[in-house]
Design a protein around this nucleic acid. Structure first.
Lengths: 244, 244
DNA sequence: CTTGACATTATGTCCGGACATAAAATACAA
DNA sequence: TTGTATTTTATGTCCGGACATAATGTCAAG
């Protein structure tokens, strides 16, 4: 019940791509074969394959067939936010080391930086970002701003150093993220940041401000991350639509 | 013929959204009404509406209906590259002032920066980026690298200061862009760059390297743009999938 | 006035079939 | 061998119908 037929087919194929049953570069079985294998109509199989296309896992050409383009992503944001690879990296490859959690009131400057109202209250969670794989050098500093009502997060974030905070909010409070707006700019490091990150003050850094919105368009979370130059590259891939 | 039925329907609806026939916030006619109006099957109408969804023009909810979310984008990349607003801005709001065009050979460092082979030959088009609306301060510097065979571009780019170079290549040489890979990082300004942009050497800047690929996955164009901090913000919007 | 049960209804999913189209593969001609 | 038709075939588009599902609005009971 929980899962629709075409979603089942899509997931099964995606797993096949992930575990090597369909290696990158190989061709997927043709539609009619898949119909037979899964006992589904061609319409359903096509819906499933379209999912894989949206995820960038396969590409299609008339007559040529359906080609496996990439290994399977490990579910989560990559599957729900189309075409953007960076967020996966964030969740999977980075770890959070919480430095400070406190209630704050937005002054005029912070309000401008975050795009919120001056005087509004927030719970701010500040943490260092570490690469999950190697080394003890932080790759960035993150300030996450959430509604002070989400007080439980104070404990939860420490216990889940790799989870996206928006996921924790969704699990705990049921507020589902429908959209993310993101601004990226270059900034010079402030003295305080520079010290925390072991850099010199004024050095070039990448600043990413994300505003997480729910379906109604209300802000659930704002995060501001600063990465010293050369410790972080923000990569993404844009594809032309199927239709084009 | 030239245009499929569902593409016609999608275009007509998109135009209606653009010209106010379907104002932002209003509800689109329900599927069965559209079927009648266009004399198309429900399947076709749904394919059209899905296009509009992919473009972010409408959102749907069961029973509630289809709601107009945004005014029509102004054709071009926004329609063909899903969910990324920045590229539109680039084409529409920026002007190019060509500074130098010359043939170069990639040395080891450039090869690393661009992700190409050392020793490969390129035609490099260097230009200042000006805001189309206001002022004479450049907002960035761009180096575009293309195949030296595209020599005609030497003249064409000067005559089309607002067109995307990849569009010019498509028009002239028929190489269609299917995918763009993009890396964003913070860098300190080199002395030469700083001088051209009226900044101090070592100041923070945003560097965007784009690799334009055709359907076969071959590189058509590489562009590297540097924006001084505070003169440029890179904005984007990510939406959750239909399916989620 | 509030609560809960229920009918309504627009979108979501799925089936089966048909023809169009483009590109690969093959056969054929030069 | 090379270039050009022709055939083949897998995907693309489109039709009509059916039932599922969830959100909305209605209405009666409390």
């Amino acid at each position: 019940m929980g899962e629709t037929r075409y979603a089942q087919v899509a997931r099964d194929l995606a797993e096949g791509i992930g575990n090597g049953r369909f290696p990158v570069g190989s061709m997927l079985p043709k539609e009619l074969e898949l119909c037979e294998q899964y006992g589904a109509s061609r319409h359903t199989v096509r819906a499933a394959i379209r999912e894989l296309q949206d995820l960038g896992l396969v590409s299609r050409k008339k007559k040529a067939g359906t080609r496996v383009e990439a290994a399977s992503p490990s579910r989560g944001y990559h599957q729900s936010l189309a075409s953007v690879e960076d967020l996966v990296q964030f969740g999977i490859e980075h770890t959070r080391v919480v430095q400070e959690i406190r209630d704050i009131v937005a002054d005029k400057e912070l309000a401008r930086e975050l795009g919120c109202a001056a005087g509004s209250k927030w719970l701010r969670i500040s943490s260092l970002r570490m690469s999950a794989s190697s080394g003890s050098t932080p790759i960035g500093w993150t300030d996450v701003y959430v509604d002070p009502a989400y007080a439980e997060l104070r404990d939860i974030v420490r216990d889940n150093p790799r989870a996206l905070i928006s996921d924790l909010i969704e699990q705990r409070y049921g507020r589902r993220i429908a959209e993310i707006r993101q601004d990226v700019q270059a900034v010079p490091l402030t003295p305080a940041m520079a010290k925390a990150l072991g850099e010199t003050s004024g050095a070039a850094a990448l600043r990413i401000v994300r505003r997480y919105l729910d379906q109604a368009g209300d802000t659930v979370e704002i995060s501001a991350t600063v990465h010293p130059a050369d410790r972080f590259t923000f990569s993404m891939r844009l594809r032309r639509d199927r239709s084009a």
